[in-house]
């Protein structure tokens, strides 16, 4: 999940320095979770995102993916839904993806909301005189939305 900052999210008081945004995606995930999660960025085009998610759904579909039995057994057997997450600016796009899968493609979709803490770093630019002396860290809450697109399993 990339950290998106829209205008109203920016730190209000003036800080001179390079703004470094730390990713909210900071946990090492198990491989199954990696394969069943799609993170929507603000730069992700809508159709590309839909296609990517459909591809993951197809992997688990027995009638489409006939050759690779990997997704029918073992750890993958417990997978019930694909997770799609989007935060900040990407929330509307994620929601329209939800309606696409729910209404047009006839999937059962759960929508969850939440907020997550991200970190902003302001690094001093030593070439400028009026810049801050030390690196400043600021925590910030960003809201996110999570879709659960349920697999169609026989």
């Amino acid at each position: 999940m990339s950290v998106e900052t829209s205008k109203h999210n920016k730190v209000k008081h003036h800080i001179n320095g390079k703004h470094i945004r730390h990713s909210a995606n900071n946990r090492i995930k198990p491989s199954v979770e990696v394969e069943t999660t799609f993170l929507v960025k603000s730069s992700t085009p809508f159709i590309s995102g839909v296609k990517k998610i459909s591809k993951i759904l197809d992997k688990f579909n027995k009638t489409i993916n006939r050759t690779n039995r990997k997704y029918q057994g073992g750890e993958y057997k417990k997978v019930n839904y694909i997770t799609v997450k989007g935060m900040g600016k990407a929330i509307p796009k994620t929601l329209s993806m939800a309606s696409k899968f729910q209404d047009e493609m006839d999937f059962k979709v759960d929508i969850l909301t939440g907020s997550i803490e991200v970190l902003d770093e302001f690094e001093p630019d030593e070439t400028k005189e009026d810049s801050i002396e030390d690196t400043v860290y600021k925590k910030r809450k960003v809201s996110y939305i999570e879709l659960r697109i349920w697999l169609k399993r026989e």
Partner: peptide, 11 residues
Amino acid sequence: IDYNDLVISMS
């Protein structure tokens, strides 16, 4: 430990 706190402490 919270990841963000860790990053701050690592600076």
